[in-house]
Each structure stands twice: as C-alpha cells, then as structure tokens.
C-alpha cells in the first residue's frame, strides 16, 4: 500500500468533519427527523456495501434481506444470553459466512442464477424459521433493551463510516485492482493470474456482514421480531434501487441515491401508501432507460461538459 498524499489527508479530514456534523443530528432534529436519519444511515450502510460488490462484478444481489434478517435474529435470540456488544460482531461473522457459502455455490455461474438464488434465499430462511417456530410453539421474539433511537443512529452512522473506510482501503488494495480488472474483462483477469472466484467471494462477504450487522443494530427498534418483518423482500429491492440510482462507480455514489429516495419513499408512503410498489417499479425503469450510471454518471457528465466548455473559451 502506498503512502497517503496530502490530498488523501484533506479528503479524509473533510469526511471526518462531515461525519461529526451528521453525528449531531439527534440534538438538532426532532423525533421525526431522527427517524429519517436512522433510515438514511441504515440504507447508506446497506447500499454502499452492496455497491462495493455489485459495482465491479455486475452481479445483482437480492440477498440483503436474508442477511439483514439473520442479523435481526442474532440480536433477538442472543440478547437473552449475551451482552449486547458481542452481538454485532457475531452477526457480522454469521452474515459473512452465509455470503461465502452463497458465493461458493453461485458465483461460478452466470448472473441470472445468482439473482434467482439470492432472491429465493430470504424467502427460504424465512420459511425455515417460521416452520421451526411452529414446531417449538414460539411465535415472535421480544427484544427489550434500553437502546434508544439515537444510539441506533450513532451505531449505523459508525457502520456506514466503517463501510466507506473499508471501501476506500479495498480500492487502494490488490483486491480492489483485481475487481476492476474482473469488471472490465473476466477472461483477461483469469489469464493474468487472478483467482476471480476467490476475489468475488471475498468481496461478497462485505455486504453479507454489513447487512447482518445492520439487522442486529435495528432489532431493538422493532421490539417485537417475527419472520415476515425481519426478512421483508422489499428491503433487498430498495437497496438495489438506491445504490443504482446513486451510481456504483464512486464510493459516495449510493449516498446520493439514498437521500432523495428516502424522502420520496416517505412522501409516497404517507400520501399513497398502496403505491410504493409502483414507485419502486418506475424507479427501476428510470434507472435502466434514463440513468444507467446513476446520479454519479450525471455529475461526471456535467463536470466533463464544464471542463470542455472552459477549454473552448
């Protein structure tokens, strides 16, 4: 790894300041503002980690809900036996292991198989948990803690910062370089000596772990956990939409998608609660036909135009 340039230090300190400002939200915003903040922080962590994997590999993962749900259950079951702080790492490891298994089974195959496999995963785990609850006679689980909304917010914000840091480190590493090559041409990557399957599996463990930790952090907010809540398939789709809307080409891309989409989603759910699916569908179509590279693509294009315009003056 090469040394940091002064520009890197500048960017790092800018990020630190932005984070510090974001961390003050619980004191400046009301209860509603804070809940929006939680949603944004949650989807930022999810969508950024999703984009770390799907951006370079072009595999569309719909497994976020499965990992998230597993994380929720780690807290739900674990809180009765273990101190809270041990649960987040456990959830992370569980998510990463699950992702590695999924990766081993599917990442050798074409993208369509991967999509179907991940789409089915959340439903599969949900049915298994529901079934085992039916057998053991339990229904849902109560998660009663003293953890408040603001603590959840800070944890998610920390997690998002961690994801950015990780993404930045991966981008500077051999693994990151390997992934860019894989994204450009997988055959060239293999014949250059890159173990493409290993690289993809390693990277897929990141969104797996992050989604599971996110689920574990949010479990106390739900108070009562049941399978249909923890494994809601909608979550997976929202993550995909937000990441693609922002753009996966840059580390900050998903954030640019998360913020407007969260507000739009809130507005639609309040005034037309039945039309959220329609909104999701329209967003997918908008991305494919109008914003193939997301907002990041638009911003890059605008920058390019401005630069070339200056050149002509």
């Amino acid at each position: 790894m090469s040394a940091l340039s002064s520009r890197d230090w500048g960017n790092l300190s800018l990020c630190a300041i932005a984070l510090a400002i974001a961390a003050c939200l619980p004191w400046t915003a009301g209860a509603y503002g804070l809940s929006i903040g939680v949603t944004i922080a949650m989807y930022t962590a999810l969508a950024t980690s999703w984009a770390l994997f799907s951006g370079p590999t072009h595999y569309i993962s719909l497994a976020s809900a499965a990992f998230f749900g597993v994380g929720t259950y780690v807290t739900g079951i674990g809180i009765q036996y273990l101190p809270y702080w041990t649960l987040l790492p456990i959830a992370g490891v569980a998510g990463a292991v699950m992702a590695a298994l999924v990766g081993l089974a599917t990442l050798r195959l074409s993208g369509v198989y991967f999509v179907i496999f991940t789409l089915g995963l959340a439903e599969f785990v949900r049915q298994i948990i529901t079934w085992s609850q039916n057998i053991s006679g339990t229904k849902g689980i109560y998660v009663l803690t003293s953890i408040g909304e603001m603590h959840i917010y800070w944890q998610l914000l920390g997690l998002a910062a961690l994801v950015w840091l990780l993404g930045w480190l991966i981008g500077r590493s051999r693994l990151g370089f390997a992934l860019r090559i894989i994204g450009d041409d997988e055959a060239v990557a293999r014949h250059s000596g890159i173990d493409t399957a290993r690289a993809k599996i390693l990277l897929f463990m990141v969104p797996g772990a992050v989604a599971a930790i996110t689920g574990a952090v949010l479990a106390p907010r739900y108070v009562y956990i049941e399978p249909s809540l923890a494994f809601s398939p909608m979550l997976s789709f929202q993550v995909v939409i937000m990441a693609l809307l922002g753009g996966t080409g840059r580390l900050w891309g998903p954030l640019v998608g998360v913020i407007p989409f969260t507000f739009l989603w809130e507005a639609i759910s309040v005034s037309f609660p039945n039309q959220t699916t329609l909104l999701l569908g329209v967003c997918f179509l908008v991305i494919v036909y109008l914003l193939p590279k997301g907002f990041v693509g638009l911003i890059d294009l605008a920058n390019k135009r401005m630069r070339s315009a200056e050149g002509y003056v």
Binding site: H58, I60, S110, G111, V112, V115, F237, L244, N274, Q275, T277, L278, L279, L280, G281, V282, C283, F284, L285, I287, V288
Partner: peptide
C-alpha cells in the same frame, strides 16, 4: 442480462402496483 433483469423487475413492480 443485467438490463433485462432490472427492467423486468421494474415491470413486475409496476404490474403489482397497478
């Protein structure tokens, strides 16, 4: 493949919404 997956997912959600 990626484009058609996203598009048909989009169409599927639009259809459900409608």
């Amino acid at each position: 493949e990626v484009d058609s997956i996203l598009t048909t997912f989009g169409l599927s959600f639009v259809a459900v919404g409608l």
